[in-house]
Lab assay of single mutants.
Amino acid sequence: MFKRLMMVALLVIAPLSAATAADQTNPYKLMDEAAQKTFDRLKNEQPQIRANPDYLRTIVDQELLPYVQVKYAGALVLGQYYKSATPAQREAYFAAFREYLKQAYGQALAMYHGQTYQIAPEQPLGDKTIVPIRVTIIDPNGRPPVRLDFQWRKNSQTGNWQAYDMIAEGVSMITTKQNEWGTLLRTKGIDGLTAQLKSISQQKITLEEKK
């Protein structure tokens, strides 16, 4: 169930391209415009997507990853294993993690069937560096609404905000991946996880038929 919630949630996290980005210092504006741009692209490019579902990787690479804190999220997933990894191991892992996100997020976007969304009203940021933004996803086919909290983090150097995690039903996506990959990290280390991520990233994206 959580895996499905995570995939549905990713439908609204794909941010804007650099040329049309919203105010990078306001995570609420980023979330709002990102959702609108993403849904528009999914709707307008269905012919290309249906002809070649792996085209979704391109959308992810162009529109999402430049505005997601990939390395920060990847380091959180590694936890204690990050500090013990060599620079070469980290570089290989982050490259594999990025390719994994292209496949995983692309597969999530393949679930698009006309969903709509509501974003919580903007709250004062103050001096906060981590801000959760509640998004409610509404399914046109009558499924119950899904309420999610996207975690946005302020870059201490640039002042810009980027998304790095999502919490559904009190469970963090980062925590879920830590639990899912924990045994592999304990037995085969970061190299074993890197190899698995490379394998997963090679899987073809498949479209979910409308139910």
Rank of each mutant, 00 (worst) to 15 (best):
K3R: 03
R4F: 12
V8H: 01
V12H: 05
I13L: 13
I13V: 06
P15C: 11
P15M: 07
A18M: 15
T20W: 14
A21Y: 14
A21W: 06
D23Q: 11
T25Y: 15
Y28R: 08
Y28V: 14
Y28N: 14
D32C: 07
A35N: 11
K37P: 08
T38G: 03
K43G: 14
N44Q: 14
N44K: 14
E45T: 07
Q46E: 11
P47F: 10
I49Y: 06
R50C: 06
A51K: 14
A51P: 09
A51I: 13
P53L: 04
Y55W: 07
Y55I: 07
R57L: 15
T58C: 12
I59Y: 03
V60K: 00
L64I: 03
Q69M: 02
K71D: 01
Y72K: 00
A73L: 03
G74F: 00
V77W: 12
V77M: 12
L78H: 02
G79K: 01
Q80T: 15
Y81C: 04
K83T: 09
K83Q: 07
S84D: 14
A85M: 07
T86G: 08
P87C: 08
P87H: 08
Y93G: 02
R98G: 13
R98N: 10
E99T: 11
L101E: 05
L101A: 15
L101P: 02
Q103I: 14
Y105G: 00
G106H: 00
G106M: 09
A110I: 15
A110Y: 13
Q115I: 02
Q115E: 08
Y117A: 03
Y117R: 10
Q118F: 10
A120T: 14
P121R: 12
E122C: 12
L125C: 06
G126K: 12
T129C: 07
I130Y: 06
P132C: 14
I133P: 00
R134D: 00
I137H: 01
I138A: 12
D139H: 08
D139R: 05
N141Y: 09
G142T: 08
P144S: 08
P144E: 03
P145C: 05
V146D: 02
R147Y: 04
L148Q: 02
L148E: 02
L148N: 02
L148A: 08
Q151C: 04
W152M: 04
R153V: 01
R153L: 01
K154A: 14
K154T: 06
N160A: 11
W161A: 03
Q162T: 03
Q162N: 04
Q162S: 05
Y164Q: 06
Y164R: 00
D165E: 07
M166E: 01
A168P: 15
E169K: 02
E169L: 02
V171L: 05
S172W: 01
Q178C: 03
W181G: 15
W181I: 15
W181E: 15
T183W: 10
T183R: 11
T183E: 05
L184Y: 05
L185P: 12
I190C: 06
G192N: 15
Q196G: 04
Q196L: 06
L197S: 10
K198L: 13
K198C: 08
I200E: 09
S201V: 12
Q202H: 13
I205G: 09
T206L: 10
K211Q: 04
